[in-house]
Every structure is written in C-alpha cells, then in structure tokens.
Write a protein that binds this DNA or RNA. Structure first.
Length: 213
DNA sequence: CTGATGATATACT
DNA sequence: GTATATCATCAGA
C-alpha cells in the first residue's frame, strides 16, 4: 500500500543544519506553490547542494551581492536567481544565518495542479518533463525574482511552502557530480536524486561556450 | 541519438 | 570584454 504524504510543514530547524545533511533529506518532500488559480504541488526528485563557505561553484563564494543576499539570511527561505538571460532557478537556504549555503531544486514530479503547470510549460511533451530541470521547475511553478526571499516555513498566506511529504529512504538516494559546474567545484558529488525516477533531469557535464562571432 | 546555436542578466576581469 | 547552478530548436547521423 502507498502511504499518504504528510502535509505538515517542514520546521525551520530542518533547514538549520549543514547543507550536505539537508539536501538528500529533501528528496520526496513536497513543495506547494499557491497561485491565484490554485495550488501546484511538486514532489522533489533531484537537488544539488551549494556551500558558500568553501565552494567555488556557489554564487555566494565571492561574497554578498544584490543577487545572492538572501543566501546570507535565515534558513528556510527561498533564493531565486535569474541566469543565462532567460531563466529562473530556485533554492532553499540552509544552515545558520551568515553561512550562505543553499540547495538548488533541480527536478520533481507535479502531483497536484498539473493543468496549471502545463499552461506555463507548453513545450513539455509529457507531464514528466514539466519540472525536469531547474529552470523548467521554476517555470512550471511560476517562480521568479518576485519570490526571492519568501519564507517557505511559515503557515500563513505564503506563496511557497515546504511540506514533510514522504522522505525517500537513504538506499534509494543516488549522488554524483553537479550539473554544469566548472573548475574545482565540479569534483564534489553534491547532486542527489531518487534512483530510477523518470522525472530526474539528464546529467550534462559543464562545457564552456565558444564566444559569438 | 548527438552537437551547435541563440536567448542575454548578472558578476567579474 | 568573458563566463555561467539552462533550455528549445534545429541539422545531421
């Protein structure tokens, strides 16, 4: 039989721990996005850990900027960045204030509100592709810089909330190098995903782009 | 299936 | 000026 997912919000203490502990435990949790048209719920299947303290791959590695300021704040808040001139990606801040660690939400399964997600993901050929990739996930959930800094742990009228869901047993968690990360940051196997899950994004090693003519 | 390309904000040299 | 925590689309095998 299939257990009913726990709809209790994740407490802030869950996020106030080392990011490498939090990241694998986020798999199987449920992210709820409240929109004017109704809720969209996503079961997380793939994440990556970024640690601003020691990690050259992290946006916070070289210090605070207007873009990454939320990473330096309290755990359990949402950090959203805009990249490649077109896309948004969504993170959850971990560790104590000042630590600047976060988990990038890379992929998931839409378990509620798929009809709303489809209207924002017209190029998706099936529902497994709705949130297969970090920018696709943010697009499907209608997340952009307007949600930067939102608290995902409060019970009020928040646009985004993390619920307990059904944690994935550790023997079902796989890990490997992070996608698209270059240099020394690429050696860390800090990408975590659910074994054999069809909504996990394909791995792509980082390739520097040749410059335009 | 693979590889090339354009879209161009943000941070950095 | 160059690189990037990406994706959609196209050409070709």
């Amino acid at each position: 039989m299939i257990a009913t997912p726990d709809r209790t919000p994740l407490p802030r203490e869950f996020f106030d721990r080392p990011v490498l502990e939090v990241a694998p435990e986020l798999l199987g949790r449920i992210l709820v996005r409240t929109t004017p048209d109704g809720p969209i719920a996503l079961r997380l299947t793939e994440v990556e850990a970024y640690d601003g303290q020691n990690d050259p791959g992290s946006h916070a590695y070289r210090g605070r900027t207007p873009r990454n300021a939320v990473m330096f704040g309290a755990p359990g808040h949402v950090y959203v960045y805009f990249t490649y001139g077109m896309w948004h990606c969504m993170n959850l801040v971990c560790g104590p204030e000042g630590r600047a660690a976060a988990v990038l939400l890379r992929a998931g399964e839409i378990i509620e509100g798929a009809e709303l997600a489809r209207t924002r993901r017209l190029s998706a050929r099936n529902d497994k592709e709705l949130a297969k990739g970090p920018a696709r996930l943010a697009t499907a959930l209608d997340v952009d810089r307007a949600q930067d800094g939102v608290d995902a742990c409060t019970a009020g009228d928040t646009p985004l909330r993390m619920l307990t869901g059904t944690p994935v047993p550790s023997d079902q968690v796989r890990n490997g190098p992070r996608t698209g990360v270059s240099g020394e940051g690429a050696v860390h196997p800090w990408r975590f995903w659910v074994a054999d899950d069809p909504t996990v994004s394909p791995y792509r090693a980082h390739v520097p782009r040749r410059r335009r003519t």
